[in-house]
Amino acid sequence: MLKLSSAIFRQLLSWPIILCATLWLALAYNLSFDEHLGAASLGAFLSYSVLALSALIVRFGYVLQQRRQQGWLRQDLLRRTTALAAVSESLAAVFSLFIFIVCSQIVVLWLNPPLNEQHEAHHLVMSRVASDSSWTFTWDDNIPEGSKLCLTFDFENSPDNVKTSSISNSIVEETVTPGNVFYWPLTVDDVRNKTITLESPLEHNLSLIRPLARLVITRPPISALPRLLLNQLLFFFTVIGLCLFIFRRLKVNGNLSSLGALAIASLTNLRDVQLMPNVGALVSSGLRYERTALTTNDIALFTWLGIGLALIYFSCKAPRADKK
C-alpha cells in the first residue's frame, strides 16, 4: 500500500506541478504582502491558498482519470481490494494538500510580513428603527464571538440635563456618553441569533445615526495562520471524498468529478438556502475574511468530516462483481 501511495503521490505532484506550486506560493506572498500594493491581509494570502488547493483537487481529478485510462481502476476492481489499499489515492491527495499548507505556513511565519496595523476591522450591519427609542441590528453571516457593535448616537434633541444616557437590551445596561463612539459587546447568544435589539430611555430622546452603525470584528493575528490553513485542509478533505465518490461510484470522468466536487463544496456558500453543513467559513478568505473566519461550529465541522469519511469509505469499497 505504501508503494501504491507513493506512486500516486509522485503522479499527483510531478516536478512541473511542484514548480508551479512554488511559483504560486511566491506570487501569493508578494500579491498579499507587497509593501506598496499588497493588502497586508492574511485574508488575501488565504484566498490564493484556497485557489491553489482547488487547483490541486482539479489535478487530483485529472490523475484519477489518467489512472482510469491506464487501467488502475480495473485492477482495483479485479483484485477486490480492501478499502485500505484503495484509500491510498485519497491519502496521497490529502498529503499533497497538507504539504502545500505546511509550506505556506513556513513561508509566511518565517518571513513574518507586516500585517494591517489595525487589529480591528469595521463591517456593515443592517439597522432599523424598532420604535422611537429602540433599534434592531441584524447580520447574515456567522460572525466571530467577541464582535462588538460600534454605534454613534445623536444627542441633539435630548433634554438639557442629559449629560449621559444608557443603552440596554433588557438584561444589560451600558452608559453612553455624547461625543464618543459607543461599543456594545455581543454575547454568544446575540452572535448565534444574528440579531439584537437595543433601547435607550425614551425621555432621553436619543437618535441613532444609522449610516454610522458598524460591526467591529477583531482580525486574527498572524499566529492564527496555522489554524486557518488547517481549516482549509479539513474543508478539502471532504472535497477529496466527494471527488473520489463521484469518480469511482458514479463512474463519472475524473476531470468532471473534481469540478463536481468543488461545485458541491461551493454549495456551502449558497445564499438563502442551506443545502450543506454550514462550513463555508472553513475557507474564509479574501479581504473581508475576518467577518466569518473561525466561526464554524463543531457540529457542522464534524458532520462535514463525517460526510467526507463516509464518501471515502463507500468509494473505496470494491463493488460486488456478481451483481444481478
Partner: peptide
Amino acid sequence: RLGYVAQQPKLPLLTSVESYFEQLVALSP
C-alpha cells in the same frame, strides 16, 4: 479471485515494468 486480459491493454505508460507489477502487488490482497 479473477485475472483479466482486456482486449485493449490499459497500462501506465510512464511507469517501469517492475514498478507496475509492484503496484499491482500493493493492490492485491
